[in-house]
Design a protein around this nucleic acid. Sequence first.
DNA 1: GTAAACTTTGACACTGATGTCAATGTCAAG
DNA 2: CTTGACATTGACATCAGTGTCAAAGTTTAC
Lengths: 127, 127
Amino acid sequence: MRIGELAGRTGVAPRLIRYYEQQGLLTADRAPNGYRTYGEEHVERVTRVAGLVRAGLPTKLVKVLLDMEDAAAAREPTCPRLVAEQLAAELVGIEANIACLTRSRDTIREFLTRTEHAALLSEAAAR
Amino acid sequence: MRIGELAGRTGVAPRLIRYYEQQGLLTADRAPNGYRTYGEEHVERVTRVAGLVRAGLPTKLVKVLLDMEDAAAAREPTCPRLVAEQLAAELVGIEANIACLTRSRDTIREFLTRTEHAALLSEAAAR
DNA sequence: GTAAACTTTGACACTGATGTCAATGTCAAG
DNA sequence: CTTGACATTGACATCAGTGTCAAAGTTTAC
């Protein structure tokens, strides 16, 4: 599939897909004519990258994370102490983010319930 | 307390505290000399604002959220259908963020465990 | 074969969040 | 009174993420 279709299926603009590739977050094969070509696996990858970026992680950290996931898939991942420390620090930040967002989510939910708009909740969940 | 102390206690730069105020996310009393003065309650407020912003929410949405919390504290919160719909939409986005971050968190945790750096986990949690 | 739709790269621009600096004012300590 | 730490506002700079446009090549549909 080419970039347009990938964009359609992920909801991520072609412009951004190219940008993420440029940042090293994505790879793409090239057709003989130079067009980028993608497989099914890229759909998830793009979705994930976009999700992390939207969640506020800098692209650089996203790269580290995803590289790590790839490395984790292989056995015997290697990880020098220093990198591990950085990751641990990031972990703290991410957990703080989760806590903050969870609280916001609960606030919105409760608010919608109290204002008689609870129907929107299931509607939203349906998506 | 003045801005410097507030910054120290929250870990948020004075520059940003002023910025958040300018964006309507914060309020501050003024001393006769023009200095901003804050109370204990501002410590939590600033922490919360900074947390949400770091989590990737635009300041504008943060404002809506916090205003909502304030309104929810009062009884009989009012909420026109249109606003409720926007909030429901935001809720979906926030939940996606939480899911994405949760997955990242698990990835890092698992990775640290597998690379014999599990000690860093409790260390991080301690903070 | 021609037009319409899509792709490529690259440049420019804009926005939001922050850093930094400058000029000035205030306050506490010596 | 002077010095140093901290405040004020406002301007300017930076960076990441995106939008948009241009010029050119490719593919698809008629």
